[in-house]
């Protein structure tokens, strides 16, 4: 992944958050507080705005900047969580253009940081339930000899499956947990936005 691809990824996320803003809000309306769409939209709009004049030395720097921007502009639970994910991933990257395996390791670092910050385990009905299967699928594809584009495509599908698989779960973290068993039957908004993040990666990588 080079800086151009990273930029493309981030732009594709912003496009996806714009397109899916209402859907994310409606999902959050059912088991949360109806702001996830606006939060993600605001955050990645801010990211786009900072990218205009930003000339990073590395993908690492770029992702750290994305994370910081998210923290400064999103708020809510998703701001610090996504912000930390991008910052930790960026920090885990080398200063040079990472290969697919380095990117995977960095994303793992991102996930670890999210889990440390939010204390969510798999199955708690959070973004982790899309993030983790996405990375596992990414890793499998690389092992099977796939390239970044193939790995990203598989990760995106796994993230979507993971998001869908949150429907029958009872939430144990975040706002949805207040609903107890009434959180069952709804898809987690954060897992859904995570699927969009991986979908954007697949789009960007495929365009190469």
């Amino acid at each position: 992944m080079d800086i151009a691809l990273a930029r493309h990824w981030v732009q594709a996320i912003a496009v996806a958050m714009d397109e899916h803003q209402d859907r994310l809000t409606q999902l959050d309306s059912a088991i949360g507080d109806a702001d996830h769409g606006a939060n993600m939209h605001r955050g990645f709009n801010a990211v786009l705005a900072t990218q205009v004049s930003y000339r990073p030395d590395s993908v690492s720097q770029l992702l750290v900047k994305v994370g910081s921007t998210l923290i400064s502009s999103v708020g809510g639970a998703s701001g610090p969580l996504y912000g930390t994910a991008f910052r930790a991933a960026g920090k885990a990257l080398p200063g040079t253009d990472p290969d697919a395996a380095e990117l995977l390791a960095a994303l793992r670092a991102g996930l670890d940081a999210v889990r440390e910050l939010g204390a969510a385990a798999p199955g708690d009905k959070t973004m982790v339930d899309a993030f983790l299967p996405a990375l596992d699928a990414f890793e499998e594809e690389l092992r099977a000899g796939g390239d970044l584009a193939a790995a990203a495509a598989r990760a995106a599908r796994a993230a979507e499956d993971g998001a869908r698989a949150t429907v029958p779960l009872q939430a144990r973290k975040g706002r949805a947990s207040y609903l107890g068993p009434r959180s069952i039957g709804h898809q987690d908004p954060g897992a859904t936005s995570t699927a969009l993040v991986f979908g954007a990666l697949a789009t960007a990588a495929a365009a190469r």
Binding site: D33, A34, D35, A38, N39, R42, I71, S72, S73, V74, G75, G76, A77, G79, P80
Partner: peptide
């Protein structure tokens, strides 16, 4: 004050 129903940001 954060956005509506959204925690403010650290800044």
């Amino acid at each position: 004050p954060g956005e509506i129903f959204t925690s403010p940001v650290p800044d």
